[in-house]
Design a protein around this nucleic acid. Structure first.
Lengths: 110, 110
DNA sequence: TTTTTATATTCCTGTTTTAGAATATTCCAC
DNA sequence: GTGGAATATTCTAAAACAGGAATATAAAAA
């Protein structure tokens, strides 16, 4: 169950791959363009893109000699849903705690 | 710059740690309680909690013999901000693409 | 058809990560 | 103080991972 989400996080747990995603945010990129832009080797770029692809984060369009990579932003949705799920209850608890601490303080004053 | 975010993702890139965070969503837990609940060893539990602690995701309260761990949900905020940042422009692009595809289709029909 | 360009894959090596086992530390109960 | 409970740390072996170099593949250009 959490395995799926963990592997999504795993795919994102690398600075080069995060930079790639930021580049892909605005437009499609070929492997060579990205390698050049990021200052890393072509094989490294291909390998990282492969990891993003396996995680379902990018799509690839074969265009003759080249591959155009594009971001699949819906792939980030589970991440958002999880974060919301976690934060909701926790924030409630934190507000409760603050409230109790405040009550305690007032009680001590009186 | 992306290093910080990458290491946050790294901390989340493990099923056991995700389960821990889900448990912490509702209440504080001691190490032993968590180990028991998750069916993993005490040392493993301590080590994973250490990783979450180093990532700033949990707080620890020393309580005599025990440590009570609690979630710091604000620590997930950078993740949310990033996701929003990435998705915003990309969705705009996707809508643009859909629009262009649609126009193309209409053009072909006429 | 030979050469060049773009990309992917494989192989190797050093590093990181994980789990288990053993050990250390600290506090509590007696 | 001795023994036991709760937790953290260290050590070790196995698996996963990142980067570099070399190679493979397929399409384009000449």
């Amino acid at each position: 169950m959490e395995e799926k989400l963990a592997s999504l996080f795993q795919a994102l747990a690398d600075p080069n791959r995060l930079r790639m995603i930021e580049l892909l945010r605005k437009q499609e990129w070929t492997v060579g363009m990205m390698a050049n832009q990021l200052g890393i080797s072509q094989p490294q770029t291909s390998k990282h893109l492969r990891i993003l692809y396996d995680a379902g984060l990018v799509t690839v369009t074969i265009d003759a000699n080249r591959r155009r990579y594009a971001l699949k932003s819906q792939a980030l949705e589970p991440l958002d849903a999880w974060q919301t799920y976690i934060a909701r209850e926790t924030d409630r608890l934190n507000r409760l705690e603050s409230f109790l601490a405040e009550s305690q303080r007032e009680e001590n004053q009186s």
